[in-house]
Amino acid sequence: MSVRTEILGSSLLITIDRPQARNAVDAAVARGIAAAIDQLEADPNLRVGVLTGAEGTFSAGMDLKAALKGESPEIDGRGFGGLTETQTTKPLIAAVEGFAMGGGFELALACDLIVAAEDAQFGLPEVKRGLVAAGGGVIRLPQRIPHHLAMEFLLTGEPVTGARAAELGLVNRVVAPGEAAAVALQLAERLTANAPLALAAVKKIVTAAHGVPEADAFEAQRKEMAQLMGSADVREGMQAFAERRQPVWTGR
């Protein structure tokens, strides 16, 4: 299998498993990631997904050899790797070791949080091949870091280390090599302590508020809050606070 999944508590560890190809994304990987995301979304006991790559490499991006044979690394409606255009309700954390190049970087950008080894390599080298980073790179990167820094990535195609990515604000945690997945899973456990409906609402509001007038953003937020306030989890959260105990979330 090109993509493995493992349930660890309330988290789903999703591993791209093509180390012989530096975990490059072909059609099978795209289908595997899409299936893993479906598993995450469908299982109410799973709260967070962690995406990583096998044997010290996140992903070298699109498998050019497979593409030359006519394979597509995209899935209609879901984007590159079955992920970059997918709307998920549950948080995703990228755990990056080694190369996150081209589409690999774009998979990480599609996640909500990024944990990276200090010596990881992030880059969008598509211009060196006559292409552009069309899996979300040219769209998302200028939204995440200042314009001129994003343009340096996109126009030079040169990579930066995980440590430098953290300095630019692209990475949540920088860790020693080999520790990214473990730290990402620890971070996932912190998220799973929170109400799943609230986590989903945060994601929806952030997405709805991007690039729209403030009044429209607040209107979108009001709609989400109206649904959230009617949930059993909100009542449970308030009751648990009053009773000085940990809440027991049901996702309802």
Score class of each variant (00 low, 15 high):
1 M>P: 08
3 V>M: 10
3 V>N: 04
4 R>Q: 09
8 L>D: 06
9 G>W: 12
10 S>K: 08
11 S>T: 06
14 I>L: 15
17 D>L: 10
17 D>W: 07
20 Q>R: 03
20 Q>F: 05
24 A>C: 13
24 A>I: 14
24 A>Y: 07
25 V>C: 13
31 R>Q: 14
34 A>T: 12
34 A>D: 12
35 A>L: 11
35 A>M: 13
37 I>G: 11
41 E>C: 04
45 N>A: 10
46 L>A: 10
47 R>V: 10
47 R>H: 12
50 V>L: 03
51 L>T: 07
51 L>F: 15
53 G>K: 08
54 A>M: 15
55 E>I: 10
55 E>T: 12
55 E>S: 12
56 G>P: 10
56 G>C: 07
57 T>L: 00
60 A>K: 03
61 G>K: 10
66 A>H: 06
68 L>R: 14
72 S>L: 10
72 S>Y: 11
73 P>Q: 11
77 G>Q: 04
79 G>P: 06
84 T>N: 02
85 E>W: 03
87 Q>K: 09
88 T>I: 14
91 P>D: 01
92 L>Y: 00
92 L>T: 15
96 V>G: 00
96 V>D: 00
97 E>L: 00
102 G>M: 02
104 G>C: 05
107 L>D: 05
108 A>M: 11
108 A>I: 04
109 L>R: 01
112 D>A: 14
116 A>M: 02
117 A>L: 01
120 A>S: 08
121 Q>H: 07
121 Q>M: 14
121 Q>D: 04
128 K>E: 02
135 G>M: 08
138 V>G: 09
142 P>L: 05
143 Q>V: 04
146 P>N: 05
148 H>L: 15
151 M>R: 04
152 E>I: 04
152 E>G: 09
154 L>K: 13
154 L>F: 07
154 L>S: 05
154 L>D: 08
155 L>E: 03
156 T>W: 05
158 E>S: 05
159 P>G: 12
160 V>M: 07
161 T>V: 12
165 A>Q: 02
168 L>R: 09
168 L>W: 11
170 L>V: 12
171 V>Q: 03
174 V>Y: 00
174 V>R: 01
174 V>G: 01
176 A>C: 11
177 P>M: 11
182 A>L: 06
183 V>C: 02
183 V>D: 05
183 V>A: 02
184 A>L: 03
185 L>S: 04
186 Q>M: 12
187 L>F: 08
188 A>M: 09
192 T>H: 10
192 T>Y: 04
195 A>S: 05
195 A>K: 00
197 L>V: 00
197 L>Q: 02
197 L>K: 00
200 A>L: 02
202 V>Y: 06
207 T>R: 13
209 A>L: 15
209 A>V: 14
211 G>C: 08
212 V>K: 10
213 P>A: 09
218 F>Y: 14
218 F>Q: 12
218 F>P: 02
219 E>T: 13
220 A>T: 10
220 A>G: 15
226 A>L: 04
226 A>D: 01
228 L>M: 01
229 M>N: 06
231 S>E: 02
232 A>K: 08
235 R>P: 04
236 E>L: 13
237 G>A: 15
237 G>S: 03
242 A>E: 08
243 E>P: 07
243 E>L: 06
243 E>C: 09
243 E>H: 08
244 R>T: 11
244 R>D: 13
247 P>K: 07
250 T>V: 07
252 R>N: 09
